[in-house]
């Protein structure tokens, strides 16, 4: 395994970051080797990184269906477990149970969505903060590249070409992220 190192560039402008990423991608850097930082969700950045549909949707959908099934099952089985007629309604009153089924659809769907977000985004992650600039949550955009020593020089050229406000070296590469 070759030793990997990292380099971080902070930009004051969005288009600098976007162009840097596009150039990196053209120069053959993989998405796994690049990381972008932004204070806002930016379509242009995501586009430059070449993202497709997020798998969070699968979580949302599965959670919702599980919730529907759970809601109806809960209401039906508990009603049949101790059959007691109330209000002249049938023991299994589907119209009444729709409400329970609906609420649990939403509950499970929402919780599964959040779970899907945590898993896919890799959160929580409370480890060290070497490759980060506190300005990224304020006004700056960042591009970080982790690559083997020889390719890192090429990355540096590309990053510097976009006039970053600051460039930092990271001697250990991915270990920190």
């Amino acid at each position: 395994m070759t030793e990997r190192r990292g380099i971080l560039a902070s930009y004051d402008y969005l288009d600098s970051a976007v162009e840097a990423i596009e150039a990196l991608r053209q120069a053959g850097f993989k998405r796994k080797e690049i990381r972008a930082f932004a204070p806002v969700p930016e379509h242009q950045l995501e586009h430059a990184m070449g993202y497709r549909q997020s798998p969070v949707r699968v979580f949302a959908f599965t959670g919702a269906l599980t919730g529907t099934a759970t809601g109806f099952a809960l209401a039906m089985f508990t009603s049949m477990d101790w059959p007691l007629v109330t209000g002249g309604k049938p023991i299994v009153s589907i119209p009444a149970f729709v409400v329970i089924g609906f609420e649990l659809t939403i509950l499970f769907g929402a919780l599964a969505t959040v779970l899907g977000f945590f898993i896919n985004a890799g959160l929580p992650k409370w480890k060290s903060r070497v490759i980060y600039d506190p300005e990224f949550s304020s006004g700056r955009f960042g591009v970080y590249v982790s690559a083997s020593q020889d390719r890192l020089e090429r990355a540096r050229e590309i990053l510097v070409a976009q006039e970053p406000a600051e460039v930092r070296e990271d001697s250990e590469g991915w270990g920190h992220a």
């Binding site: 972008a36 204070p39 950045l45 997020s54 959040v114 977000f117 959160l123 992650k125």
Partner: peptide
Amino acid sequence: GWRGTDREWHHFGKA
């Protein structure tokens, strides 16, 4: 431990 990375924002938006 949010850092505002592309990956975080991408899934955040969808969620």
